[in-house]
Amino acid sequence: MRDWTHGGLARGLLAATALIFLVAGLGLVAALFLGAWRFLGEPSALSNLFGDFWDPLRNRYGVLPFIVGSVVVTLGALVMAVPLALGVAVTLAEQRTAGMKDFAVRALTVLTAVPSVIFGWWGLQMVVPWVRARVGGPGFSLLAAGIVLALMVLPTFSLFFFQSLERVPQSLREGSAALGATPDQTLWRVAFRAAMPGLTNGLLVGVARALGETMAVQMVIGGQTALPSSLTSPGATLTTQIITDMTVFPPGTRGHAVLDIMALLLMLGMYVLVRLAERWGSVS
C-alpha cells in the first residue's frame, strides 16, 4: 500500500515534469508568435516581408536576402561536406579491427563537440584571407561561410553515415561478394542501399545543424543585408541577422517582431526536417 502511494507520487511528479516540458516547448513557439504578431497584424505585412530589401530606416523589412543566404550557405556546406563525410564513413567502415572503429567513433564524437567559435576563428584566420586573395573583395562571403560550415558539420555527417553503414549486416556484404560483386559494387548496390534510411537521417540532422549554426557563420559571412549577387559576395543568414540585430531592435519594436518571424521560419524549417527524418529516415 505504501509502495503504491509512493509509486503514484513519483508517477505524478514525472507526469508533471513532462507536462511542463510540453508547455515550455510550445510556450517558446508561442512567445515567438506573440512577438511576431505586432508585425504580422499589419496590412501588407507579407509583401513587405518577402521583399528582397532590408532597410528598417525606410520601413522595408524584406527577409528574402537572409532566406537566400541561409539556403545558399547550407547547400554549399552540404555539397562539400557530404562527399567528404561519405569518404570518411566508407573508409572507417572498411577498417577491420573493432578497436580502430571504436577509436574512430570516439574521435568523431569529440570533433562534433568542437565549439562553433573555434571554426569561426579558423575561418577568420585562413578562409577569409584565402577568399580575399583568390577572388578579391573583402573575403567575408557566402563562400567562406560555406567552407567553414562544411568542416563544422563534417564530423556530424561522418558519425551518422559511419554508424548507418555499420548497421548493415556483414552477412549482406558477404552475400553480395559471394555472387561475384566487386567491393565497389557491394558498396553501391548493397551497403549504401541497405543503409539508406540511416544515411537520410544523418543527412537531415546535418542539414538542421547547418541551418541553425550561428556564430561560425556570423564571424565570416560579412553581414551584408542586400541580396547577395554571387557566392563570393558578403551576405547574411537568418541566424546571423537575428544575432546582429537583436542589440539594434529591443523587444517591442517592429524590427524585433521581424526577428521573431525569422526565428519562426527557422523553427518551421526544423519541424519539417524532423518530420522528414521520421518518414524517410526511421532506422528500423
Partner: peptide, 16 residues
C-alpha cells in the same frame, strides 16, 4: 516531435 524540433532549434532562437 517537440523534443526533436527543440533539439535542432538554433540556439540563437532560444536566446531570442
Amino acid at each position: 516531435h517537440l523534443r526533436a524540433t527543440l533539439l535542432s532549434a538554433p540556439t540563437i532562437v532560444v536566446g531570442l
